[in-house]
């Protein structure tokens, strides 16, 4: 796993609720058996005006001039500002791989879908939630102030806006924070409990033997 400690960077707003993972990375790109190379197809059907094909060169495709990721003022953004229920729908981790490959390190929103949030943590992407009023305020700032940056520090659980001097604290699950900060291989971590797992499995085999008969 990749570690996440701190990010300081430009914010790009994506002002819609219920952004689903089909929108984040459309199905045709899930035919890849790799984890890399999804960034150019992030938000493909909103970002480009034609239909995207897997493995195609995207550099000359017609772009939607209104989509925030295509606006020069948001070029190089590393923080995505979003609304409620971001990442809903399909469990596809390809959505997070696309977000990471594009260059985002943190997502700031009202809420995230459960499976998507887990996938973010596994890939060193911070899904950060703030109250709806604060998110409204941040959307306003990204529009008003060109080059609106945020400093996000996970250790202290704080967000700062250098341009306005504002700051906020955020909540995060302690275990997820620990995983992000250390970038631990969580399989390795779990295997430290190998004996406990074996003990549990032996108990389960005794208690519900039919679950182990059919298939081994």
């Amino acid at each position: 796993m990749k570690a996440f400690e701190h990010v300081s960077g430009l914010v790009v707003p994506l002002d819609r609720r219920d952004v689903d993972t089909d929108a984040i990375i459309p199905k045709q790109f899930m035919k890849s058996i790799k984890r890399t190379g999804f960034g150019k197809n992030l938000f493909d059907s909103w970002r480009y005006l034609d239909d995207g094909e897997p493995d195609a060169d995207c550099s000359n495709r017609p772009r939607n001039p209104d989509f925030p990721l295509n606006l020069p003022r948001y070029a190089g953004a590393s923080i995505l500002l979003c609304r409620e229920n971001f990442g809903c729908g399909s469990s596809r981790e390809h959505a997070v791989w696309a977000i990471e490959d594009y260059g985002f390190r943190a997502l700031v929103g009202v809420s995230f879908a459960d499976i998507f949030r887990n996938n973010c943590i596994k890939n060193g992407i911070l899904p950060l939630t703030l109250p709806p009023e604060t998110i409204d305020e941040l959307f306003a700032r990204t529009r008003e102030i060109e080059g609106f940056d945020l400093d996000i520090d996970l250790t202290s659980q704080t967000v700062r806006a250098p341009a306005t001097g504002d700051g906020w604290n955020f909540e995060i699950d302690a275990f997820q924070k620990h995983c992000l900060l250390t970038g631990l291989d969580d399989v390795e971590l779990t295997l430290l409990e190998e004996e406990r797992i074996r003990d549990y499995e032996a108990r389960r085999r005794r208690g519900t033997p039919w679950l182990f008969r059919q298939t081994g």
Binding site: S91, E93, K122, L191
Partner: peptide
């Protein structure tokens, strides 16, 4: 439902945290 990293975790450990 789980993501691909969690699939790997379950394959390797039979568990999820």
């Amino acid at each position: 439902g789980v993501g691909t990293s969690e699939i790997e975790h379950v394959l390797a450990t039979q568990c999820l945290r």
